[in-house]
Amino acid sequence: MKTTAVSFRAAKGQRKLSMLTAYDYTTARLMDACQIDALLVGDSLGMVMLGYADTLSVTMEDMIHHCAAVARGASRPLIVCDMPFMSYHLSPEQACANAGRLLKEGRAQAVKLEGGADFAEHIRLMVRASIPVMGHLGLTPQSINALGGFKVQGKAPEAAQKLLDDARALEAAGVFSIVLECVPAPLARLVSQRVNVPTIGIGAGPDCDGQVLVWQDMLGMVSGLSPKFVRHFAEGGETMQQAFNAYAQAVQNGTFPAPEHCYGMDEEVLEKLR
């Protein structure tokens, strides 16, 4: 059954929701055949697909290009597309216009934006325009310079209260779900209890209504330090490197291509060539 923003929201209290990032057609097709509820075309593509140091350089054109590819590959999960840095910050009207582009040109079925009560009016306008909106609180990567780095958010009393207040403001504005990133598990549990829309955790403990991970992280494809909240469900990076090396060796030693990989032709044709 197709997952929609309506059915996604209705799952709160009924079952846990699963979401993974997706950035291309081939991966989306694989995920479409699995039990994933939603695919997030995240602006994390800037780091894991394009090699940027952060998400700030990602453009609307980047998001539209990758989202359209995912939409061509997946028909069952809900497709949520991130609104990139400065695509919604200037005004509610700018936010609504760019969100509309993600739906029209990128074929997204919902958008996600970072920030709390400051963007409530932006969300209200988008919801009035029939654009489903997912919120994002806690560690918001587009604000990395203001936050001073990738740090757990909401540990101090004032910060914890603000996060809870922001969650309530997002719900009142009309979001159908809220991502909580790098939030202490007890606070994420409290927020999940206090709002009536699903919370989707990433580094926010087990009591959120669902979870999201970057697929390259959960398959062990990112070298270097891995965030504490990431679990490797398979060593995909190691498997790929083994396959790449095996291919290179087979080419070098002449075992690939073998006869079964080749096309033949009539010898008489060859004999007539001059």
Rank of each mutant, 00 (worst) to 15 (best):
K162L: 14
L187K: 07
G210F: 10
G174M: 07
L219C: 11
P227Y: 05
S223N: 09
P186M: 08
A172K: 11
K228M: 04
D165H: 05
A159E: 15
F233W: 14
P186T: 13
L219A: 07
I200S: 03
F233E: 06
I200T: 02
A188C: 08
P186S: 13
L190V: 12
N196E: 15
F229P: 04
A204N: 08
F229A: 04
A172I: 02
R194Y: 11
N196D: 15
V179F: 14
V175Y: 12
A160T: 05
G210T: 03
A172G: 06
D207K: 03
S226C: 11
E181S: 09
P184A: 09
G220H: 04
A167C: 06
A234M: 14
G205A: 10
M218F: 13
C208K: 00
A188G: 05
V179T: 11
L170R: 01
I200H: 03
F176N: 02
A188V: 06
D209W: 06
I202R: 03
Q161A: 14
V214E: 03
L163W: 08
M221A: 11
D166C: 04
F176C: 02
T199G: 06
R194D: 15
A159C: 01
V214I: 11
S192L: 03
A185N: 08
A204T: 04
G201L: 12
M218Y: 10
P186E: 11
A172E: 15
R231S: 14
V179R: 02
A185W: 11
A160R: 07
P186W: 14
V212W: 00
V197R: 00
A159G: 13
R189Q: 15
S177L: 07
S177P: 04
S223C: 01
S192C: 07
C182S: 14
G201I: 08
H232D: 13
D209N: 11
Q193M: 14
A169P: 03
R194V: 15
S223R: 08
V222N: 07
V183D: 08
G220L: 01
P184Y: 12
A173V: 06
M221Y: 01
L180M: 09
C208A: 05
F233Q: 09
P198E: 12
C182I: 07
D207W: 10
A173S: 14
L187D: 12
K162Q: 15
V197F: 12
V183C: 13
S223W: 00
G220A: 03
C182W: 06
S226Q: 15
V183S: 07
A160L: 05
S223Y: 03
L219M: 07
G174V: 06
G224L: 07
V214R: 00
L225Q: 10
R231L: 06
I202C: 03
G224R: 00
L170K: 00
C208Y: 05
F233V: 07
